[in-house]
Design a binder for these strands. Sequence first.
DNA 1: CGAAAACTTAACAATTTGGTAATATTTACT
DNA 2: AGTAAATATTACCAAATTGTTAAGTTTTCG
Lengths: 226, 226
Amino acid sequence: MPKILIVDDDPDIVELLEYNLQKEGFELASANDGLKALEIAVTFNPDLVLLDVMMPKLDGIETASRLRKIPEFKNTYILFLTARSEEYSEVAAFEVGADDYIVKPIKPRALISRIKALLRRDMQNATPDNEDKLVAGGLVINRKNHSVLLNGASLTFPKKEFELLFFLVQNPDKVFSRDEILHKIWGADVYVVERTVDVHIRKLREKIGDSYIKTLKGIGYLFSLD
Amino acid sequence: MPKILIVDDDPDIVELLEYNLQKEGFELASANDGLKALEIAVTFNPDLVLLDVMMPKLDGIETASRLRKIPEFKNTYILFLTARSEEYSEVAAFEVGADDYIVKPIKPRALISRIKALLRRDMQNATPDNEDKLVAGGLVINRKNHSVLLNGASLTFPKKEFELLFFLVQNPDKVFSRDEILHKIWGADVYVVERTVDVHIRKLREKIGDSYIKTLKGIGYLFSLD
DNA sequence: CGAAAACTTAACAATTTGGTAATATTTACT
DNA sequence: AGTAAATATTACCAAATTGTTAAGTTTTCG
């Protein structure tokens, strides 16, 4: 079950949310300010963070911004809660990578359905056997222990290379532009030159051979077994 | 490609922006004060306006405010540029409908990424009429993979060839003159000789056979299954 | 803190693609 | 069939794109 971190300085709201989300079977943790939220996040490792915008110590925007800077939370969903009057913060929210934005007063049923909508993609991708293991041709990629077997021989990959390989293998026969790849692997707020992808592709090919990853000139790269 | 209007009274900044955005393939126009910006906007019809806050004649805030009052620019993105010290204007900026707010000194890569983030939604929706997958006779064309299957065999096409094929197959039994094809595939502002189309048609026929693409002498080309 | 690994960038080489012109062939019409 | 116009084909060059290497940065970890 997905893990949700609730962050709000109003205990009533925290309770309201906990009550409703617990009913749905989510795993929960909560914090009442931004600083505590960051602390808890690193150990709790939530899939989604419900973040109040107005909070003491560290407001929601700043909390989200810091979270996003930690690689582990690059793909964590962030969902802001805000009072109707605080509209101005909407832009700032999406700027720091918000995935959704919910205006108080909170309607529990609406909230739950939006949370589920966000998590749905993951739920689907997280099918049991698909868990963390990909097999394609002579390649066996295991996300859990970060291992790759090529025709039985074990290879090791640095993080970026591994993620790139995993991403490509996960979407076989689909082309991705360098820009798309950067967004997916590096994140929306990382500014690196597109050619960086080339170099990583080269390193992958060096290790797994040239046959798996193909180049479509003017388009991008793709993983394929043909 | 999306059109961007650059408005800044500092020619150096305009040049910097033009240089970097041109590289990305955007269509550009520029103005050095707010009044000119409004003039140019109505004819240029930009998708996004980069607006300096401090300008002679008409400051950025006022310019944006007037832009927003013109119905055509309801959905135009407005992105403010400002010196770090002028923070006070941030609230005003969002009040008049800013979509983003960027502090100088400008980091080109960050700017481009934020512009793209804004425009991405549009870009994605900008392909309503062209489906992802086309099937015609023994041909299966998949835009997502950029792949073409001919009777089960996979073929690869360079970008222009692929686009030309996709376009023709998308409109079966419809004749297009070379001029129309050039406009559709090459774009309105690209000047190439009409014979170029012939060469590309030839390359397509070389790969998929002569039967699919027919020539109507004096008229143009068409894709057909007869 | 310092060394090693990982990551990013830049520069140049290699490759592919796109465009043109020259030439050959086909078509339409008399 | 002869002829002019249009199209097909080919070969070549320029431009665009990617491959590769190496050097500079940053991060990680002992």
